[in-house]
Protein backbone atom coordinates (compact mmCIF):
# COMPACT_ATOMS: atom_id res chain seq x y z
CA UNK A 1 0.00 0.00 0.00
CA UNK A 2 1.30 3.41 -0.90
CA UNK A 3 2.55 5.51 1.94
CA UNK A 4 0.12 8.47 2.41
CA UNK A 5 2.88 11.05 2.60
CA UNK A 6 4.43 9.80 -0.64
CA UNK A 7 1.02 9.96 -2.39
CA UNK A 8 0.52 13.55 -1.21
CA UNK A 9 3.99 14.38 -2.47
CA UNK A 10 3.15 12.91 -5.90
CA UNK A 11 -0.05 14.96 -6.08
CA UNK A 12 1.81 18.13 -5.10
CA UNK A 13 4.44 17.38 -7.77
CA UNK A 14 1.69 16.94 -10.38
CA UNK A 15 0.08 20.25 -9.43
CA UNK A 16 3.46 21.95 -9.55
CA UNK A 17 4.05 20.53 -13.05
CA UNK A 18 0.65 21.79 -14.22
CA UNK A 19 1.41 25.26 -12.82
CA UNK A 20 4.67 25.24 -14.78
CA UNK A 21 2.71 25.09 -18.04
CA UNK A 22 0.17 27.74 -17.11
CA UNK A 23 1.11 30.79 -19.15
CA UNK A 24 2.25 33.69 -17.03
CA UNK A 25 3.03 36.84 -18.96
CA UNK A 26 5.87 38.17 -16.96
CA UNK A 27 8.40 40.61 -18.33
CA UNK A 28 12.00 39.47 -18.48
CA UNK A 29 13.96 36.36 -19.35
CA UNK A 30 13.00 33.25 -17.44
CA UNK A 31 15.04 30.07 -16.93
CA UNK A 32 13.82 26.98 -15.15
CA UNK A 33 16.06 24.29 -13.70
CA UNK A 34 15.16 21.26 -11.65
CA UNK A 35 17.63 19.14 -9.74
CA UNK A 36 17.47 16.05 -7.63
CA UNK A 37 18.05 16.48 -3.88
CA UNK A 38 21.34 14.55 -4.09
CA UNK A 39 24.10 17.05 -3.14
CA UNK A 40 26.26 15.79 -6.00
CA UNK A 41 24.08 17.92 -8.32
CA UNK A 42 24.82 21.19 -6.49
CA UNK A 43 27.93 21.76 -8.59
CA UNK A 44 25.83 21.46 -11.76
CA UNK A 45 23.47 24.07 -10.36
CA UNK A 46 26.40 26.33 -9.45
CA UNK A 47 27.69 26.17 -13.03
CA UNK A 48 24.24 27.10 -14.36
CA UNK A 49 23.84 29.94 -11.84
CA UNK A 50 27.22 31.33 -12.85
CA UNK A 51 25.97 31.66 -16.43
CA UNK A 52 22.62 33.12 -15.39
CA UNK A 53 24.13 35.72 -13.04
CA UNK A 54 26.63 36.71 -15.75
CA UNK A 55 23.78 36.95 -18.27
CA UNK A 56 22.04 39.34 -15.88
CA UNK A 57 25.13 41.56 -15.95
CA UNK A 58 26.69 40.95 -12.54
CA UNK A 59 30.45 41.20 -12.04
CA UNK A 60 32.52 38.03 -11.41
CA UNK A 61 32.59 38.86 -7.70
CA UNK A 62 28.81 39.34 -7.49
CA UNK A 63 28.22 36.18 -9.58
CA UNK A 64 30.25 34.21 -7.03
CA UNK A 65 28.12 35.57 -4.18
CA UNK A 66 24.83 34.76 -5.98
CA UNK A 67 26.07 31.22 -6.67
CA UNK A 68 26.86 30.88 -2.97
CA UNK A 69 23.41 32.11 -1.92
CA UNK A 70 21.61 29.69 -4.27
CA UNK A 71 23.86 26.81 -3.23
CA UNK A 72 23.18 27.56 0.46
CA UNK A 73 19.43 27.74 -0.17
CA UNK A 74 19.39 24.38 -1.98
CA UNK A 75 21.66 22.80 0.65
CA UNK A 76 19.14 23.90 3.27
CA UNK A 77 16.34 22.28 1.23
CA UNK A 78 18.30 19.01 1.06
CA UNK A 79 19.14 19.02 4.76
CA UNK A 80 16.02 20.44 6.36
CA UNK A 81 13.10 19.88 3.95
CA UNK A 82 14.22 16.48 2.61
CA UNK A 83 16.33 15.39 5.62
CA UNK A 84 19.21 14.32 3.34
CA UNK A 85 17.02 11.96 1.30
CA UNK A 86 18.16 11.99 -2.34
CA UNK A 87 15.83 11.70 -5.34
CA UNK A 88 13.43 14.49 -4.38
CA UNK A 89 12.82 17.49 -6.65
CA UNK A 90 14.10 21.01 -6.21
CA UNK A 91 12.76 23.54 -8.74
CA UNK A 92 14.74 26.70 -9.40
CA UNK A 93 13.25 29.47 -11.52
CA UNK A 94 15.38 32.47 -12.40
CA UNK A 95 13.95 35.60 -13.97
CA UNK A 96 15.94 38.54 -15.21
CA UNK A 97 13.81 41.68 -15.19
CA UNK A 98 14.97 45.19 -16.09
CA UNK A 99 15.76 45.83 -12.43
CA UNK A 100 16.61 42.56 -10.73
CA UNK A 101 17.50 38.90 -10.91
CA UNK A 102 14.75 36.99 -9.16
CA UNK A 103 15.34 33.40 -8.04
CA UNK A 104 12.51 31.20 -6.77
CA UNK A 105 13.33 27.85 -5.17
CA UNK A 106 10.50 25.40 -4.56
CA UNK A 107 10.67 22.04 -2.80
CA UNK A 108 8.08 19.44 -1.91
CA UNK A 109 9.62 18.49 1.39
CA UNK A 110 8.66 19.12 4.98
CA UNK A 111 7.26 22.63 5.40
CA UNK A 112 9.54 24.78 7.49
CA UNK A 113 8.58 26.76 10.54
CA UNK A 114 9.22 30.14 8.91
CA UNK A 115 9.80 31.86 12.26
CA UNK A 116 12.69 29.51 12.96
CA UNK A 117 14.55 30.48 9.76
CA UNK A 118 16.89 33.13 11.01
CA UNK A 119 20.61 33.72 10.94
CA UNK A 120 22.54 32.81 14.05
CA UNK A 121 24.62 35.41 15.91
CA UNK A 122 28.04 35.47 14.27
CA UNK A 123 29.87 35.88 17.58
CA UNK A 124 28.97 32.29 18.51
CA UNK A 125 31.68 29.88 17.41
CA UNK A 126 29.71 26.83 16.37
CA UNK A 127 29.19 24.88 13.17
CA UNK A 128 25.92 25.38 11.28
CA UNK A 129 23.42 28.20 10.87
CA UNK A 130 25.59 30.28 8.55
CA UNK A 131 23.65 29.57 5.33
CA UNK A 132 20.71 31.84 6.17
CA UNK A 133 23.10 34.64 7.14
CA UNK A 134 24.88 34.28 3.77
CA UNK A 135 21.60 34.32 1.82
CA UNK A 136 20.32 37.41 3.64
CA UNK A 137 23.64 39.22 3.28
CA UNK A 138 24.09 38.50 -0.42
CA UNK A 139 20.54 38.97 -1.69
CA UNK A 140 18.56 42.22 -1.55
CA UNK A 141 15.17 40.52 -1.10
CA UNK A 142 14.55 37.24 0.73
CA UNK A 143 11.12 35.84 1.41
CA UNK A 144 10.32 32.36 2.73
CA UNK A 145 6.89 30.77 2.25
CA UNK A 146 5.57 27.60 3.76
CA UNK A 147 3.36 25.84 1.17
CA UNK A 148 0.98 24.43 3.80
CA UNK A 149 0.98 20.62 3.86
CA UNK A 150 3.95 19.97 1.62
CA UNK A 151 6.80 22.10 0.48
CA UNK A 152 8.42 25.47 0.76
CA UNK A 153 9.10 28.39 -1.54
CA UNK A 154 11.98 30.80 -1.21
CA UNK A 155 11.79 33.94 -3.30
CA UNK A 156 14.95 35.97 -3.40
CA UNK A 157 16.23 38.74 -5.60
CA UNK A 158 19.25 40.85 -6.25
CA UNK A 159 19.05 44.23 -7.93
CA UNK A 160 20.99 44.48 -11.15
CA UNK A 161 24.13 46.58 -11.14
CA UNK A 162 23.54 50.10 -12.39
CA UNK A 163 25.25 51.00 -15.60
CA UNK A 164 27.98 53.56 -15.22
CA UNK A 165 26.66 57.02 -15.94
CA UNK A 166 23.02 55.96 -15.48
CA UNK A 167 20.85 58.08 -13.24
Amino acid sequence: MEDGMELERKIARLFFTIRQFKPRWLPGKSIRISINSDPVYLRVLRAAMDEIAALAGFSRKECAKIILAVDEACSNVIRHAYHDVAGQPIYITCRITPIKLEIVIVDLGEPADIKSIKPRPLDELRPGGLGVHIIRTVMDEVHYENLAKIGNRLIMAKFLPREEGAL
Binding site: R46, L68, R126, P127, L130, G131
Partner: peptide, 16 residues
Protein backbone atom coordinates in the same frame (compact mmCIF):
# COMPACT_ATOMS: atom_id res chain seq x y z
CA UNK B 1 37.98 26.47 -5.87
CA UNK B 2 34.73 26.84 -3.93
CA UNK B 3 33.63 26.60 -0.30
CA UNK B 4 30.16 26.82 1.21
CA UNK B 5 28.95 27.00 4.81
CA UNK B 6 29.24 23.23 5.26
CA UNK B 7 32.98 23.59 4.59
CA UNK B 8 33.17 26.43 7.10
CA UNK B 9 31.24 24.34 9.63
CA UNK B 10 33.82 21.58 9.23
CA UNK B 11 36.68 24.00 9.89
CA UNK B 12 34.83 25.48 12.88
CA UNK B 13 34.36 22.01 14.34
CA UNK B 14 38.07 21.34 13.88
CA UNK B 15 38.95 24.62 15.60
CA UNK B 16 36.65 23.83 18.52
Amino acid sequence: TYMDSSGLATLIEGLQ
